[in-house]
Simulated assay, not measured.
Amino acid sequence: MADSLLAKLGDLTFTAEEQDAVVVTPDAVAIPAEDFASSLVGKVVSPPTVDGSQLIRKFRSIQKDDKVLSISEINPNFFLISFASPANRTNVLKLGPWNFQKYWFALEQADPNWTIHDYSFLHMCIWVRIHNIPLSLMTAALARVLRALVGKVIMTDTCCVI
């Protein structure tokens, strides 16, 4: 069957109209690059495809409409979110990590030159709290050891370190 399909494809011809090249300049059709300063891409990291319209409704219910300009599902489980300002975008990142239907909703800064395949979603910010450390071990030295174990540390609250 594959051979007969290839033979039929070899016989295809184009009309003069179909052979005309289409030239599109990015400036005419692209989202302005400055709009991406206030945008995030998000991916629900899950084996099943989630209902994108449910995620959009849920996200809009959490974020005020004056802060979120648009949310578009651009691929299954993959979203582009535009905010009213870079500060709104940064606030959403600080409030994370996010989840949807018990799956991680990974968010990254949108890059106007990347395709959806360029995003890795391999990292997330989490808050780590360690309980029941003996008082004799509540030291800056132990804090340094623990920091080294968890990966890249963005911030440490050392109010209780002796």
Rank of each mutant, 00 (worst) to 15 (best):
K8P: 00
K8E: 12
L9N: 08
L12S: 06
Q19H: 10
A21F: 14
V22M: 11
V23Y: 13
V24C: 00
V29W: 09
A30F: 05
F36G: 02
S39P: 01
L40S: 02
V41T: 01
L55Q: 04
R57T: 05
F59I: 04
S61D: 14
D66W: 05
L69S: 07
S70A: 15
F78N: 01
F78A: 00
F78S: 00
L80K: 08
I81V: 14
I81E: 07
A84H: 05
S85E: 08
N88A: 15
N91E: 15
L93Y: 06
P97V: 04
N99K: 12
F100C: 00
Q101D: 13
W104M: 07
A106Q: 05
A106Y: 09
Q109C: 10
A110W: 02
D111Q: 13
W114M: 12
W114I: 03
T115P: 02
T115V: 12
T115I: 06
D118T: 05
D118P: 03
S120F: 11
S120I: 14
S120E: 15
F121A: 00
M124Y: 14
W127P: 01
H131Y: 15
P134L: 09
T139P: 03
V145F: 14
V150Q: 06
I154W: 10
I154V: 10
C159H: 14
